[in-house]
Amino acid sequence: MSERSAAIQHHRNHLRLGWRVVVILLLITSVLAFLGVSAVRQDAAILLNPESIRELVTMVGALLVVVVALVGVYSVMVDFVFWEGWMQGLPDPRDLFPALDPNASGHRHYLVYLDGIHQSEEDHPPRVSEFLQHLEQAIDRDSLLVKGIEAYTITPVGLKSTPFGHWFWQRLFSLQEHHPNGWVRFLCSFCVQANNVIKVGISSDRRYGPVMNYELALKIARRLAAIGFHPSRASRVVLVGYSGGGEMAIGTAAMLQKLCHVPVQVITVCGVFSGNGDLETLEHVSMVVGAKDPVAALGRIAYPGRLPLLPLSNWNRWLTYGRLHRYEIASMSHNGNSGPFSRHYRDQVVAAICSELALTQAG
């Protein structure tokens, strides 16, 4: 019995020791948790300090400025690298359209869609794709809608496949889609938008714009030639540009007209454009605008050449011909659920485009 009592007493002592260890661990954990919460509160208080917020905003702003500068240098340099022939992609315009095959069939009217600055590859976002499907069904059988042209690269491919830069853009798109940090995804998306915005700015510039616009005109002409376009059979090319794509369309139209040897007209949808392009040879430019579109309205202010105060600007001199047709859609904004691609407004936008096509029917 004495051995059994000793065993029981040993077991009780062991249990008491275990509870003491648990209590001590709980006390240590509570102290560490309290210290951790205090530290977090202290750090949060520091971050909420006006000076800290100002410093953080300054650092983020400086980073964005550096990123935009680098993207801008890339956007300008790749145009001139392509122009100088280092990428072996600048074709001879005389070879664009070979002799016409008498047995070949083709369309008379070609609509070329140029997307806004959100475009990052040849494929369009779902909402834009649905809009283009509706437009494709609404145009007549003698017209062909050309989709998938990346307006912010000069090579026949999108950013992910551009020579000398595909490794950078592929990495950027991968981070944009898969990185767990929201700030990193935002910064990568911002870089893509910055590249496209800078391309719009280059297109509107009188010094460097003609180089990039000519390269984009060649890109469009090569796509048209690949799908059966021929100057002896086609009647016209219509450039439909959304948002910043409106600037790309207006900047490219005159050069594309010379390359394709057919009239080229422009239809902008919520267009943001300068009007600095060579417009004298264009017969028709039309605008589909939203009554509540602040972006397009800001674009007009950002480009003084479109203001009536400068009557000798390219845009205002062209307006003297009286060929501008304006289609205003009530309550429509620039994008989102109230934009031109939303279910509520896309049918009205398609109807406006078709009305313009019928009004300016060529040949």
Rank of each mutant, 00 (worst) to 15 (best):
M1R: 09
S2E: 13
Q9A: 13
H11N: 15
N13Q: 15
L15T: 14
G18R: 15
W19V: 13
V23M: 15
L25M: 08
L25E: 10
F34L: 12
L35W: 15
L35M: 14
D43L: 15
I46Y: 15
N49Q: 09
R54Y: 11
V57Q: 14
V60F: 12
G61F: 09
G72M: 07
V73Q: 13
D79V: 09
V81G: 06
F82L: 07
W83H: 05
W83G: 00
W83C: 00
G85V: 00
M87S: 08
M87R: 12
R94A: 06
D95C: 00
F97R: 00
F97Y: 02
A99P: 05
P102Q: 08
P102L: 09
S105V: 12
G106K: 01
Y113F: 11
L114V: 01
G116W: 05
I117C: 07
Q119I: 10
P125G: 06
P126Y: 04
V128H: 04
F131R: 00
L132N: 01
H134A: 15
H134G: 12
I139W: 02
D140V: 03
R141T: 08
L144P: 07
L145D: 03
V146C: 03
K147C: 04
I149C: 00
E150K: 10
A151M: 00
L159K: 11
S161A: 15
P163M: 06
H166V: 13
H166T: 15
F168M: 13
L172A: 08
S174Q: 15
L175E: 10
P180N: 06
P180W: 07
N181L: 14
G182F: 11
F186M: 09
F186E: 10
C188E: 12
C191Y: 11
Q193L: 14
N196T: 03
K199N: 11
I202F: 07
D205L: 07
R206K: 10
R206N: 05
R207F: 09
R207D: 05
Y208I: 09
G209L: 03
V211W: 06
Y214Q: 04
Y214P: 02
Y214S: 03
L216F: 03
L224M: 01
G228N: 03
P231S: 03
P231V: 00
S232P: 07
R233N: 08
A249V: 00
I250R: 07
I250S: 06
I250L: 12
I250P: 05
M255V: 00
M255C: 00
L256W: 02
C260M: 01
C260E: 04
C260Q: 01
H261A: 07
V266H: 03
V266Q: 02
T268L: 02
V269M: 06
C270A: 08
C270I: 02
C270R: 01
S274G: 07
N276A: 09
D278K: 06
E280S: 08
E283Q: 14
V285L: 12
S286L: 05
D293W: 08
A296P: 10
A297R: 12
L298I: 06
I301H: 09
A302V: 11
Y303I: 03
P304N: 08
G305P: 04
L307H: 08
L310Y: 14
P311F: 07
P311I: 05
N314A: 08
W315L: 02
R317S: 10
W318Q: 01
L319H: 10
H325E: 12
R326V: 13
I329V: 03
I329L: 05
M332D: 04
H334E: 03
S338H: 10
P340R: 02
P340D: 01
Y345K: 01
D347F: 09
V349R: 04
L357C: 06
G363E: 13
